[in-house]
């Protein structure tokens, strides 16, 4: 398999765990994997990205523009900011819930959604809504991973991902995260049928 996956969001949203689980699962299935994370000052409330590159022949640590088949966006404006990484025909899974820049007024997410819809195949999801049963938006990273898997755009099996969640999440949070993953998977399967 050769596949580039770009994960983007705002510092503190938990993009790194999603990237770690996807990378580990892809390796578990026998692929060569390279990845890169935003580290340092930009983590503090800034825009962050994780680049996951699956397959041989990936030299650049960052995904070249126009190469990612999948964009996992934890925030609508970040989806637009990173859209140029997506290849024509690629899929974006996008959280429609807006994160306001710190210390300034919020912005309207609707134009972002409308723009993305025009540009690529999108699966939209509202993190507030899907995380409500779990009591915290901190579960969104696992849910969005589940959505991508359920929609069949991740290219990694449900079992392998589940196993990595078991291994990489703190023991006392494993059960709740597995439920979150399953919930995401269902949403993804549904979205995939609609498209």
């Amino acid at each position: 398999m050769n596949k580039d996956i770009l994960i983007c969001g705002v510092g503190g949203q938990g993009t790194v765990l999603a990237s770690k689980i996807i990378a580990a699962a892809a390796m578990e299935e026998g692929n060569a994997v390279h990845s890169a994370e935003t580290i340092g000052m930009a983590q503090r409330g800034g825009s962050v990205t994780s680049h996951v590159r699956i397959g041989e022949g990936a030299y650049s640590p960052l995904i070249p523009h126009g190469s990612a088949e999948l964009l996992l966006a934890f925030e609508p404006a970040e989806a637009v900011r990173n859209l140029s990484y997506l290849c024509p025909g690629g899929t974006a899974v996008v959280n429609t819930s807006v994160v306001a820049p710190a210390g300034s007024a919020s912005y309207d997410g609707e134009p972002m959604r409308a723009y993305l819809e025009k540009k690529c195949r999108c699966i939209f999801v509202d993190s507030e809504e899907v995380c409500r049963p779990f009591g915290s938006v901190r579960f969104f990273n696992i849910i969005i991973t589940g959505i991508a898997a359920g929609a069949g755009v991740l290219g990694i099996s449900r079992e392998t991902l589940t196993e990595q969640i078991r291994r990489r999440v703190k023991p006392k949070f494993v059960e709740e995260n597995l439920k979150a993953f399953a919930a995401g998977y269902e949403i993804g399967s549904g979205a995939s049928r609609q498209v």
Binding site: S47, L83, S84, C87, P88, A102, K119, C120
Partner: peptide, 22 residues
């Protein structure tokens, strides 16, 4: 040989996110 990209020249204005104290 550059890969074809989605044209994002017409993207809506994006909020700036300078890093801030937690």
């Amino acid at each position: 040989a550059l890969p074809e990209c989605i044209d994002t020249a017409d993207a809506p204005a994006l909020p700036a996110r300078p890093p801030v104290l937690c």
